[in-house]
Computed example of a mutant assay.
Amino acid sequence: MAARKSSPRKIRLIKKQKQTSPVPAWVILRTRRSVRTNPKRRAWRQTDVEVG
């Protein structure tokens, strides 16, 4: 990854970083544990992010 990133690329990387967060505890409580895991969860080292 280049040290100097363009702004659009940086925005896409930030979006991917937000998507990979776990489900908040209050959501698990509110849905009575029907929603436990984030289906978009991604391991940063194993999975390649296609952001261009």
Rank of each mutant, 00 (worst) to 15 (best):
R30C: 09
N38L: 01
W44K: 13
I28T: 00
I28W: 01
A25E: 09
P22Y: 02
R33Y: 07
R36K: 15
V49S: 03
K18W: 10
T20E: 03
E50D: 15
L29S: 13
E50A: 15
R42T: 12
K18N: 02
N38P: 02
T37I: 07
K40A: 08
I11C: 04
L29Y: 07
T31E: 03
R9A: 10
I28H: 00
A3Q: 14
I28S: 01
R30Y: 12
A25S: 08
R45N: 14
I14W: 10
S7P: 00
Q19H: 07
K15M: 12
V27Y: 09
R36I: 12
P39C: 06
S6T: 15
R30M: 11
R42H: 04
P22T: 06
K15Q: 13
R9E: 14
L13M: 08
R32F: 14
K5C: 08
R45L: 13
W26C: 03
N38Q: 01
T20K: 04
S34Y: 05
N38I: 00
R32M: 13
Q19C: 10
P24F: 01
V51L: 03
T31K: 00
A3K: 15
K15C: 11
A2C: 12
A25I: 04
P8T: 04
P39W: 03
L29R: 13
R45F: 06
K10A: 12
D48L: 14
S7D: 10
K5W: 08
A3L: 14
A25R: 01
N38E: 02
A25Y: 01
G52E: 14
R36T: 15
P22N: 08
W44L: 09
A3Y: 07
P8V: 00
K40S: 10
P24E: 05
T31D: 01
V27M: 15
R30L: 08
R33N: 10
R36L: 11
K16D: 06
Q17S: 12
K40G: 01
M1R: 09
L29W: 13
M1K: 10
Q17T: 13
R41F: 11
P24C: 09
